[in-house]
């Protein structure tokens, strides 16, 4: 009996740890910060490079773009889904895919300029992560 309990405890620990590892894995993939006002989150992609921000707050809240402008044609209605695609990279953007549909130098600044505007980097990622944890806006 005791042995079984021991094994059970061991197993639950194992599960707990793997769960923790899984959570860590999730945050490695990127950040999704809910925004109730807008109804759509701030998204930080971590693939193929870390720390690329898409802000619904800016695009919907300030620019007033509608959901249909991007969804579901350019992006599926699921946060961080796009980065699973193998072609989610700068070259695709230059060919007018994803962000590149608007960021072509005519509608919005071209994808190959002003890099650090969307690329908030590891520093930006960490800052947002911290804000999320402390519940600060």
């Amino acid at each position: 009996m005791k042995k079984i309990i021991k094994i059970l405890i061991f197993l639950s620990f194992l599960l707990g740890f793997s769960g923790l590892a899984y959570l860590q894995e999730r945050s490695e993939e990127g950040l999704v910060i809910p925004n109730e006002e807008i109804g759509a989150p701030e998204i930080v992609y971590n693939k193929p490079v870390k720390g690329v921000l898409f802000s619904h707050k800016y695009h919907v809240g300030e620019l007033g773009l509608s959901c249909e402008s991007c969804h579901p044609k350019l992006f599926e209605m699921q946060a961080l889904k796009a980065q699973e695609n193998p072609d989610f990279n700068m070259n695709a953007l230059y060919q007018g895919k994803y962000c590149g549909a608007c960021h072509d130098g005519k509608m919005a600044f071209a994808s190959n300029t002003k890099c650090a505007t969307c690329h908030i980097g590891v520093k930006g990622l960490k800052r947002l992560e911290k804000e999320m944890k402390t519940g600060k806006k």
Partner: peptide
């Protein structure tokens, strides 16, 4: 430097 995106690779 304008190309740097702080991916920290």
């Amino acid at each position: 430097i304008d190309l740097c995106i702080d991916c920290e690779r």
